[in-house]
Each structure stands twice: as structure tokens, then as C-alpha cells.
Design a protein around this nucleic acid. Structure first.
Length: 161
DNA sequence: GCCAACGTTGGC
DNA sequence: GCCAACGTTGGC
């Protein structure tokens, strides 16, 4: 049984279109610097898990694509790069703090906006809608996943998972 | 730009 | 281990 996740990306950094333009439409999910989000990648994710690709910190936040987890967790190299905004001086190569997974976009969708998500009676318990939620990676319950794919008009995509 | 909410840091 | 101060996230 696959798990499902919602992953936030800032379109100014890596939009769904940016990822689609990359080889295999796959992006290393770099820059996660929160232990809870890291642990989801490290302990929770399996290759093939479903991912809702979400745009945050932009004019119209919302779900803009369907993706999948495309690798296991591995060391995020930017933590050792002093020139990177994600540099972490406290992380040592012999004990890396931060990991990432590769994420492959399968399909760009319409923007299922945060406003629509909030207005949807079937999605009230979605973690990303909870007040004060700031986690960039959150688990998604199967019932929420199915509802969202339905709202996106992509029920056929269900078979990919 | 504002600010609520939350995570992290560091002094004690 | 407590908790105040600080930094960050992210919607609005």
C-alpha cells in the first residue's frame, strides 16, 4: 500500500513547470531543514508514494500537480555547501543532518486552490489546512487523496498508485 | 508588509 | 529542563 504526501514548493524556487522541464520531470527535493519533514522523507516515504505538488508563498497557493516519490532518502548535498542558502554549518559529513528524496511530476493539473480546499467539506481534516501549519511535507490520508484526485478530474491517475 | 504560529537556540 | 528571545513560514 502506498502512502500519500503533500509537498510544498515555492514556485519562485521550483515550480511544477520548472520540474516538468527537468530530465525525467524529476527534482531532488532539496532544502528541507525541519526535523519533522525530514523524518517523513527518512522513515515514512517509499518509492512510488503519491505526492500532491503544492505551490506556497505565491499569489494563488494550491495543488498544481500529481507526483510520485522517485527515490529513497539520501544526503542533501546543499547542507555542506557554504555558498548555498541551505548551508548548515552544524552538519558534519560523517553525520549528515539533512536528507532528501527525488520527486517526479507525473501530471500538471489545474490549480486546486487553497480557497477551494478550505471550502471542501470532505477535506476539513487535511493537515495543510490546519491553523498555523507550516510543515513543508505532510502525510495525506487515502480518503483525502482520492477526494483531491476526483476534484482535479484525474481519477484515472489512481491506477498509477 | 504584517503578523500568527511554530521551531530552534541558548542562558540559566 | 525551562523558557524567553529570536528566526522562519506562509497566508493575507
Amino acid at each position: 500500500m502506498p502512502n500519500y504526501w503533500l509537498m510544498k514548493a515555492e514556485p519562485a524556487e521550483a515550480s511544477v513547470d520548472d520540474v516538468l522541464a527537468m530530465p525525467n520531470a524529476t527534482v531532488p527535493w532539496t532544502g528541507v531543514r525541519n526535523y519533522q519533514a525530514r523524518n517523513f522523507m527518512l522513515d515514512g516515504m517509499q518509492v512510488g508514494d503519491g505526492v500532491l505538488f503544492y505551490h506556497s508563498s505565491c499569489a494563488e497557493p494550491g495543488i498544481v500537480g500529481i507526483a510520485r516519490v522517485a527515490s529513497g532518502a539520501y544526503t542533501d548535498p546543499t547542507q555542506f555547501d557554504a555558498k548555498s542558502p541551505y548551508f548548515d554549518a552544524a552538519s558534519k559529513p560523517e553525520a549528515p543532518r539533512w536528507r532528501l528524496v527525488d520527486v517526479q511530476v507525473l501530471r500538471k493539473t489545474r490549480n486546486l486552490t487553497l480557497l477551494e480546499l478550505r471550502a471542501d467539506a470532505d477535506l476539513q481534516d487535511l493537515i495543510v489546512l490546519k491553523k498555523g501549519n507550516r510543515l513543508s511535507i505532510t502525510p495525506v490520508e487515502p480518503r483525502h487523496w482520492h477526494t483531491i484526485l476526483q476534484r482535479l478530474g484525474s481519477p484515472g491517475l489512481q491506477e498509477a498508485f
